[in-house]
Amino acid sequence: MADLQDEPHSVGIGAEDLPAPFAPETAASALERAAALLSVHPVADGCNTFVWTLRQSPYHDIDTPDGGVDTDIPRLRAGGVGAQFWSLLVPPGRLREDATSDQVVSDTLEQIDVALTLMHRYPDHLCLALSADDMADARNRGRIASFLGPVPGRTLTDSLGALRAFHALGVRILAPAGAPWAQQDLTAFGHEVVREANRLAMLLDLTGCPPAVACQLAGASKSPVIISNTAAAALTPHPANVPDEVLIAVREANGLAMVTFDTARTGDSLHAVADHLDHVRAIAGPQSVGLGAAFGAEPPGPRPAGLTDPSGYPRLIAELLDRGWPESDVTALTWDNAQRVLRDAEFTARRAAH
Rank of each mutant, 00 (worst) to 15 (best):
307 L>D: 00
278 D>N: 14
292 G>E: 01
307 L>I: 05
308 T>H: 12
294 A>W: 12
276 H>M: 08
298 E>I: 02
274 A>H: 00
277 L>A: 07
307 L>P: 01
289 V>M: 01
274 A>R: 01
307 L>R: 04
278 D>V: 03
299 P>A: 10
297 A>I: 05
275 D>V: 07
303 R>P: 10
282 A>K: 15
277 L>E: 03
292 G>N: 09
282 A>G: 07
299 P>I: 10
277 L>C: 00
296 G>I: 08
282 A>Q: 14
295 F>D: 08
295 F>R: 01
273 V>S: 03
275 D>Q: 10
279 H>A: 11
307 L>V: 08
276 H>Q: 09
280 V>S: 08
284 A>F: 09
291 L>W: 02
306 G>Y: 07
283 I>H: 00
288 S>P: 03
291 L>K: 00
287 Q>N: 13
284 A>T: 08
294 A>M: 12
307 L>K: 00
275 D>E: 15
301 G>V: 11
299 P>N: 13
285 G>W: 06
292 G>F: 03
292 G>S: 05
276 H>D: 07
295 F>K: 00
300 P>R: 09
279 H>R: 15
282 A>T: 08
305 A>C: 02
276 H>E: 07
287 Q>C: 11
289 V>K: 09
289 V>S: 06
304 P>R: 01
289 V>G: 06
292 G>P: 05
296 G>K: 07
298 E>V: 09
279 H>P: 12
301 G>W: 06
293 A>Q: 05
296 G>P: 12
303 R>E: 08
276 H>C: 10
282 A>L: 13
294 A>T: 10
303 R>N: 10
308 T>L: 11
290 G>E: 03
284 A>E: 11
275 D>G: 01
282 A>F: 02
288 S>D: 01
282 A>I: 00
281 R>D: 07
277 L>K: 04
285 G>T: 09
288 S>W: 01
298 E>P: 02
303 R>Y: 13
277 L>H: 03
